[in-house]
């Protein structure tokens, strides 16, 4: 199933060759597909999302309604296409905020060490001691749900994890001799962080960003499923499942396809991350 593809311009030469297997390629293709859908959703949706187009509710898949109709008789395909904007958009914004904050704090803590590192690590570890869905519940209960609140909450929930990960990597790099060499040369902290450490943790940090993106999509869907995420009349994929949960005992497509949409996104991100293109050096000497 896993075939190896070499895309080396000069086999046997000094140029890097890359290995990117089919599993990873399929993952990347699916991610790109959902990205395009999220950007162009209003243009490709066959029906306006609020329009009650079908006389029947929980209608089956048909030529007119590819993915059936929902509990009010609205077109499920259109609602999923537009819902991708909320699921993908909110999750992306949250994951970038969480990782940017976490990585910068993590690198600074690793290079500075001492009391700053200890206090920051303790505090953020304590926040890791709150189950994530619960954190979301409590915040939403306190301040109500809106898109900015969701982005900030999701970012706050996953920042400690991103910090912990980046700090652990940075501590390892920081202990390497080349950082010691730079330090002995008289270099200052910003140089150490951005020139010596950051390029060497970038790969794992990007992979971590993907993993965290999946977590955030799952958590956001979970919150919306509980009715605490994206609020009507807007709906992300989790909210679509909630709206149509009555149709579950009928096996309605309206409840199955939003689930499939979530699964295709999260599984394809996982597939891509586990099979990132690898730069390979042919070590035969």
């Amino acid at each position: 199933m896993i075939s190896v593809l070499r895309t080396s311009p000069r086999p046997g030469g000094t140029g890097p060759s890359w290995r990117f297997n089919w599993v990873g390629r399929i993952g990347l293709a699916m991610i790109l597909f959902w990205a395009v859908v999220a950007i162009f959703a209003p243009m490709i949706a066959p029906y306006p999302i609020g329009e009650i187009a079908d006389w029947d509710y929980f209608g089956p898949m048909s030529g007119q309604f590819w993915l059936g109709s929902d509990y009010l008789g609205r077109d499920v395909l259109s609602r999923i296409l537009v819902g991708s904007r909320y699921t993908v958009g909110i999750s992306l914004a949250a994951v970038f905020a969480a990782c940017a904050g976490g990585v910068i704090l993590g690198m600074v803590a690793a290079v500075m060490g001492g009391l700053f590192d200890t206090l920051l690590s303790r505090l953020l570890d304590a926040f890791n001691g709150i189950p994530s869905l619960l954190f979301g519940l409590v915040v939403v209960a306190a301040v109500g749900s809106s898109i900015p609140v969701l982005v900030l909450t999701l970012a706050a929930i996953y920042l400690p994890g991103a910090y912990r990960f980046a700090r652990a990597l940075s501590v390892n790099v920081n202990a390497m001799d080349f950082v010691t060499v730079a330090r002995a040369r008289g270099e200052r902290t910003p140089y150490l962080i951005f020139r010596e450490i950051f390029p060497n943790i970038l790969g794992p940090v990007l992979a971590d960003l993907g993993v965290r993106f999946v977590f955030i999509v799952l958590l956001l869907s979970g919150l919306s499923f509980l009715g605490l995420g994206v609020q009507p009349p807007n709906a992300d994929w989790g909210a679509l499942v909630r709206e149509n949960i009555e149709g579950l005992s009928l096996g309605a497509p309206a409840v199955i396809f939003p689930c499939i949409a979530i699964a295709t996104l999260t599984i394809s991100v996982n597939m891509f991350i586990d099979n990132l293109p690898k730069k390979i050096r042919d070590r035969s000497e």
Binding site: D177, F178, R185, P199
Partner: peptide, 22 residues
Amino acid sequence: KDQLRRCQMVFQLADTALNPAQ
């Protein structure tokens, strides 16, 4: 800075003494 310049150190493991990303 001048004192740092005039005394340099070379490490045992060449692998870890060179930044692999540069």
